[in-house]
Design a protein around this nucleic acid. Structure first.
Lengths: 227, 227, 227, 227
DNA sequence: CATGAATGAGAGTTCATTCAT
DNA sequence: AATGAATGAACTCTCATTCAT
């Protein structure tokens, strides 16, 4: 059935194939799907492009996925680790909150940069499909929650502005970073805009804004990241 | 041409109709296009839905637009005023930067809320079409530039953290507000999420973060967060 | 693409199907295309008429051809043998040039008669599409060249008017025969004109004119004009 | 009603307009129609192209013509004089049949050359529409008949091969000339083929073939046209 | 499990023609 | 007589999905 309601299908990925051959084919399809999706975007990608890329026939695609959407979901699942936002816990908490924030910010931006095409894709698909909109939201929420806990902790320790709602502040600041990354690594890159800043400047400014916004005290050994 | 390369058309709108009748029809089509686009999204909208809504025949659409994309561009043009981000200059500069920021933030969020469907649409289309990606970028840049000037001004006046690059800071903070608005008024609304915050909280938190991030001094006489 | 530039496509036929089923379907489509084209003319034929005739769905057509034009090219390719102008060499050169010319003329006219609908079609399409105009020209050139060599040979043997340019004479005389056939088997037949002459008269007159035009000597023993 | 049966309309041209303005507009439309038809071909020409060329509105076209076909008929009527084949009677019968034939041939080819685009057009339309197929046939018949009478006359005077049927011979030879002209001035020209012969060679060869075909005696003052 | 031909609903777009102004 | 906006039937082509082999 052509051109039906897109995204009307659930994207519950069905059981993994049991035979080695099946696993190989499926894996090839997921890799191919990622390649094609990242290259052409979700809408412009044809199932046949994916199967061609995976060197199998059109029908085989439907042995492993019920729809193009499901294949996209499989791609997302496969790269989940990469996409996991490396929030604050991933960096050593060495006692200097500003340093922690900067390290986290750097880690986030570097990860974003590595997966820029995929993030662009996610942005595209999330705005087309409520299912993926929810997926993005939920994944983002994990990131936001982690940061919210960090903010609350800093408030408890008397280091952060107690007048801020930790959740809302985290939503805002996390969105700040992700939007900055999106415009920098996706929009400007796609449009061929000259990069207005290098990664260090981004990290420096963004983490300084974040720390300032929480009213964190200056680092003891004052080492202004830029200026 | 069925389902060919989307967005292959330039945005050169055919000459405006000269007769009143033509102007009426075209206007009706633009209104209908906005209605349909906002209701169904860009991709799910059919030209015939628009003409049905405008109570004219399918062929008439092509008297005024070369494609669905062009009609969308016409919608954006028509509502440009509404979409214009109010930015800082639109509110009275009464000497208290925090108050100005709060007023601006409120104005922005209120505008966003009023045009939430359109903003969602823009987000969708921009992630599909490079042409509209650029349009969004350029419009956003105007907003960012205004805020950057404001930040630089505050730095000059010794009120804002001199260690911040005004442009990058503006990109970051402007993105923070727009992303917050997007998640609040579009994503959460579409997904039927219980609103985690009311408008006042959003305004209060966002503007406090913004002012903190710049290290603006506390307002001298503690005024109520909004008035 | 509805009713856009006709004949904008090249004639690169997609790869032949490998499976027997595919070959069967493709062959059925070519047969159906010929039937429909001959019945309705090229312009009046719809792709859907062809697929209906071939008992397959509309989409299947595009598995094998990129356009109606390409299907027509496939028809021409398939019936190339039939359409090949028999020309002089195909008949025994028994030493009497007039007899050879008469036999050739008869063979040509009989072939034309058998493929009259196809010739009409070719005439129609060639006058619409430069691609097919060239195809017709090139095919005609083969016929003309053969006759030109024959004329030159007769001149060498002192049997034909040496004052004639063999190429131009062949172009002229070949055109004479083909035009005669066209008017007789296509135009008059389509218009329901009473046939002004039977095949024997056509052969007799045309071959006599051809032979006279070259100033071939009379046949020695007056044989009956046709056997 | 778009895309209806082409040529389903009769092409009886309706009454001429009475007012001077109407006559002017109609004349402009006929000129424009010829220009556009000759430039783009009948099928590729749009009514709106014609009215644009004539600097009037689309609706005005239908004040004077019932259809695109009728406008084409009007063009043909207007240029009837030019298109009239200048058969034998148009040249002085100075007693030398070969000279007469050569002069006629030259006149025909020169006329054809001048109206090549129109002849191409006629060839295109005649192969699309039975109505115009008939028109072409009838006009050609006038030419053929004239030549047939000439041939019969030459036979009566003992100058032409009495074994030829005058009508069939005329059909054949007239077709020879028109086909030669068509390939030379239309096909080769459109395809950008290098002209294989100049006008003088065409005239010389064609008229010699014609005269030979009738077995006309050599001109008394033997002046071989070429060689 | 793999193949790849077949499906067919559906969309965008054209343009000759009409008709209210 | 002129205008030009409106009409809408018709057509081509796409591609996700199915299914016989």
């Amino acid at each position: 059935m052509p051109a039906t309601e897109p995204f009307a299908h659930s994207f519950t990925v069905p059981e993994e194939p049991t035979t080695p051959r099946g696993q190989r084919t499926r894996a090839a399809l997921v890799v191919a799907a990622r390649t094609v999706f990242e290259r052409d975007g979700f809408l412009e990608s044809r199932v046949i492009d994916i199967t061609t890329e995976a060197r199998c026939s059109a029908g085989t695609f439907y042995t492993y996925f019920e729809s193009k959407e499901q294949a996209f979901a499989a791609v997302l699942l496969q790269v989940k680790e990469e996409m996991l936002h490396p929030g604050l816990p991933h960096v050593p908490d060495d006692g200097d909150p500003r340093a922690v924030i900067e390290a986290s910010t750097r880690a986030y931006l570097e990860t974003y940069q590595r997966n820029a095409r995929l993030m662009a894709l996610m942005e595209q698909v999330a705005n087309i499909s409520p299912e993926f909109q929810r997926l993005r939201r939920d994944r983002g929420a994990a990131f936001v929650d982690r940061n919210a806990r960090s903010i609350a902790d800093l408030q408890t320790r008397g280091l952060a502005d107690p007048g801020l709602d930790p959740d809302l502040a985290s939503r805002s600041l996390s969105g700040m970073i992700s939007r900055l990354a999106f415009f920098h690594f996706v929009v400007d890159a796609e449009l061929g805009e000259p990069s207005p800043a290098d990664l260090d400047s981004l990290v420096s400014t963004a983490s300084r804004l974040w720390a300032n916004a929480l009213r964190l005290p200056e680092s003891s050994h004052a080492r202004p990241p830029q200026e």
